[in-house]
Design a protein around this nucleic acid. Sequence first.
DNA 1: GTAGGGTTAG
Length: 626
Amino acid sequence: MLFKSIGFKYRRRCFLVVSPSSFAIGTFTRFTYSDSSNAYLFYTQQCQFEEQIASLIQKCPDMRTLRLIHARFLRSPFNFSCYALSKVLGFSALSPSGNIDYARRLFDQIPNPNVFAWNSIIRGYSQVRDTSNPREPISIYKKMLRLGFAYPNSYTLSFALKACAIAAALIEGKQIHGQVYKYGLDSSLFVQSGLLNFYAKCEEIEISKSVFDEMPRKNHVAWSAMITGYSRIGMVNEALDLFREMQQAGIVPDEITMVSIISACARTGALDLGTWLHKFIDRNNIKVDLKLSTALVDMYAKCGSINKAKKVFDEMSKRDTMAWSSMIAGLAIHGLVEEALDLYSRMNETNVIPNHVTFVGVLSACALHGLVSEGRRFWSSMHVLGIVPVMEHYGCMVDLLCRAGLIEEAHGFVEAMPISPNLVVWRTLLVGCINAKRFDKTDAVAAILLELDPVNAENYVLLSNMYASRCQWEKASQIRKQMKNYKLKVVPGLSSIEIDGMVHEFSVGDESHPEMREIRGVLKEIAERVRLSGHKPMTLSVLHDVGDEEKEIALCEHSERLAIAFGLLKTKAPVVIRVVKNLRVCGDCHQVTKIISQTFEREIVVRDRVRFHRFIDGSCSCRNFW
DNA sequence: GTAGGGTTAG
């Protein structure tokens, strides 16, 4: 047979050789892939032709080749077929080298998409992470139901639930929960775990747990999803209990379960448990993949053991963007900003492309250490790299400018944002104004905060504290009254400490701890030693309209002091006392902890909401900048 | 012919 090469060469990957009578039955097209292997497309009968299309797509390396295959297919003499087309659609919607827009155009041309096509496009849109519209897959699912040509199956519902989980679309997800019964798919393990994951992501943890409890068979996916659900909202002891229960139930955890539980340790600062889990991984030969190593780096860094984090990182044979990003962020919260920025340069040298998460780490490193010009430099290099800033980046920049006292610029920056600033950004600006004593701006920003969310407890606490710190007691109490009217609950300051694998949590005025009497004894001892050191309590940190003496008592019972006292009670030097707090450390507690580290000769590490404070012999690693 | 669970500003 004579062939005429049309000399087509697609980026050295794919030659296309077409015979002169290419569309007649019995002729063929040859594809040569990048590994020099050949594939042939024979024009025989439609069903065989479709099979061939399917196997070609299985090997397809990129969109360019896919377009080529698609073009061949369209120009073939065969009928329009949903099967082959949904293969093409599947690749462009789902493959890492696919293209969701191409998939969408293709999908829109299918007159009667079958359930596979619907599933591909729904799942494809859920995989697109940086989309401007996370609800797109949900609307496609709704359209599928509306048109009624294809019925959803268990795959459809799993994918739709995943989309609802990503978009935190509670109402739509609940509707799908109803449809699960309507279509008789409630016995599918995939649908069940999809539901449980969806409720967990929407922070409806109780519903999530009831779905979990009702599952007749629970596999390791269900356990992991439930553990992650608890961990994400800070119910870490529940997450840890579940991990123990899982083992009792004889379910073998895999690397994903380990990521879930280790990230729970990272959140709560449970170093001992995290270390134990690391050994557990080795003992049970659990595969340590890139993500698990990254979770370990993150855990060691967030639990205060930066050297172990470095060790895990150094021993990694392969590092992706997230691994580098975690290490950079870890160094930054430990005050090792030079090392963090050096590591960023090293990352660039190794040709790993930084992403938006990397820049969250780098920018927050600059903000935490007051490096304004470096921060600005990273901000512009981010744009050069084509990374579109998201809310977190704006948050970092506002924080950076505010900490440097550049309030005007920070304010201008917020007002010029192309996306509308969220509560966190406005609160960062407000805190910046308060710290810089720019009270001319605070009222306007406060008004915006209240307008944006009139029922947000955190806003009210911030405002009430702001007025109290300026001794504007009337305004402060007005805010408190408003809070009561709305029945808003204050987020209490919580500090936790891990002793013998148990996480103990303390809050102001909480008497429920069984060893409270002994803790009081230690607190008394602390107060005495602090008094002898000549420290004057900074009563401004207690912002209630009460007498100084009461303020002093309230200060002594800040949650971190209770946790530190408990640590002194239960451990002996040289064990480091490690405390994790959900809010920022107040000025007085910071000073007092320094004194404790000196007079009790103990190293104390406090992780607050944003960074670590390592207190040794009367001084702190943050150099009083926080 | 297709699945489900894994980190990120204040």
